[in-house]
Amino acid sequence: MRFERRHIISMKDFTRDEMDYILDRATKLEPLARGGRSDLLAGKILALLFYEPSTRTRMSFETAMLRLGGGVLNLGSKEATSIVKGETLADMIRVVSTYSDAIVQRHPSEGSALMAAEFSSVPIINGGDGAGHHPTQTLLDLYTIRKESHLDNLDIAIVGDLKYGRTVHSLTYALSLYGANITLVSPPQLKMPDQIKADLKARGARVRETENLEEILDSIDVLYMTRIQKERFPDPTEYKKMAGAYKITIEHLENVRDSMIIMHPLPRVYEIDSSVDTSSHARYFEQSFYGVPIRMALLTIVMGVEV
């Protein structure tokens, strides 16, 4: 499989075989991700260009690189850089790609990662481009599902903002390649766009929609919760009503399958009550950890290092 020096921009760039290859690589590296150090990427440097706040993505890439024996260059605060002087992203990429072996980038404009790839002499890994793509989140979601549940014949419910949520669009795209049964749960004003649903069905996913979270809880393997932003609701009363209807508490879990797992890309706000955290179904903190082996896998792959 040819990955060396390839950019990681969108899940749509991957075939199912390629996704499986990355997940297999992450499985091999997971013991190392749990504690330890190797010299697989000794002498390699990863640049982190984050133009927007990030906790999990930035820190897990740093952890991944350090566990593999490599070094990390951080952009630091905007105020301390030439960004305040008006330097373009294109120029920044041209320069930083001469200092590093790969660049992870998060930028507020859609398409910024693809543009960066046009100017970079090293692989660009998209850590989020506005409302666009966030492929490493999708890969760690797939890894979590494969590890903690199963990807074949999967019944998954995805809950929340299905209209604007980039995580959800990327994830459903990837799951469609595995022929998953996808239940979309959202308030009417945040339903998944018709075009995306049609694409999912065309690729082999079975898709159904409901506004009622409780009615589907006993028939799924994975419950994937997402945050609904308050700004989407001009009327605060409407928001409060909706927030109650899409919140999961320990009481909801009485009749679910024993093996059912609950995921969330984090940060959560109200969607999952803290009473769920200690249940056998909660997997969102493990999911967050799996970002490390997945990012270790991607870094070794784009830097052309065999594991």
Partner: peptide, 13 residues
């Protein structure tokens, strides 16, 4: 049409 698209910024694109 997307004001937040990178092609609508000062970037040389």
């Amino acid at each position: 049409i997307n004001p937040n698209c990178i092609s609508n910024t000062k970037e040389p694109v």
